[in-house]
Amino acid sequence: MDAYERVRIARKTDRPTAADYIGSCFSSFFELHGDRRYRDDRAIIGGIAMLEDMPVTVIGIEKGHTAAERVEHSFGAPEPEGYRKALRLMKEAAKFQRPIITFVDTSGAYCGIGAEERGQGSAIAENLMEMMDLPVPVIAVLIGEGGSGGALALATANRVWMLENSVYSVISPEGCASILYKDASLADAAAENLRLTAQDAYSFGICERIIPEDDIGSPSFYKKLSSELYSEMQKLLQIEDIKEDRYQRFRAFGSGVAI
C-alpha cells in the first residue's frame, strides 16, 4: 500500500476516534473539563479511567464522527486551551501518581487568528517541556493522524504506539507538496518522501509497537489493546527513573556524531 493511501485511511471519519477507545478500553471513565484558565476546548477530551484495577489519566484528541460532532470537536484541531487542559490533567496525574495514556489523532494544532494570539506555539512548547518532566509513565497511542507539533504535544511519551494505518508527520503531505513542488496535488509523492507511515516510524525507533487493524473497532480489538496497555504500564512502573527513560528515548533521535 502506498503512503498516501495510508493517509487517506488515517483520515477516514468512520475510523474509531479517541472517544471510542476511551469508551472501550477502560472499565469506567470520569470526564474532566476545562483548562482552569479560560475555557474547555472540546478538541481534547480527558479524565480519569480504570484500566483493569489501575486508575489512569486518559487524554485524547477527539475528531468526532458525525458532522455535528466534528464541528463540536473542531475536527480534532486543539487550540492553546486544549493543550493547557491536557497539561493540567497530566500535572494532576503526576500529583496522584497515576500513569497517563494519550490517544492522538489530529491533522495539526488549530490554525487560526485567536489560537495564535493566545499562544499556540507557547502552549505546545510548554507541554513538550513539562511532559519531559512527568514523574509517571506515559504511553501515547497514535490512532489516526499524527499531525506535527500538535500531535507531539500529547506524544512526548515513554512509549509511542501506532495503529497500522495511522501516520505521523512533520508536515501534511499537501503542505509539503505545496511548499516544495508548489503544487498540493503532488501530495502522494510528498507522502512517500516524508516517510510518515507507522512502519517508517517503527524503523526509526520513533514508535515502539504497531497495532494491527484486522479487527479494528471490534470488542476483541479493544480487549487486546487494553490488556497490552495494562501489561506495558506494569513494565513501565518498574522503571526506576521514568523521566530519564523518556529523556533518553528522545535524546537518541539524531544523536550520533562522526568526526
Binding site: A125, L128, L152, T156, S169, V170, L194, F204, F250, G254
Partner: peptide, 20 residues
C-alpha cells in the same frame, strides 16, 4: 522543523525541550 528530515526533525522539538 526541516521537512526534508521528516519525523526525525519533529522529534528535535521534544529533544531540545527536554534539555531546556
Amino acid at each position: 522543523a526541516r521537512m526534508q528530515e521528516g519525523l526525525l526533525s519533529l522529534m528535535q522539538m521534544a529533544k531540545t525541550s527536554g534539555a531546556v
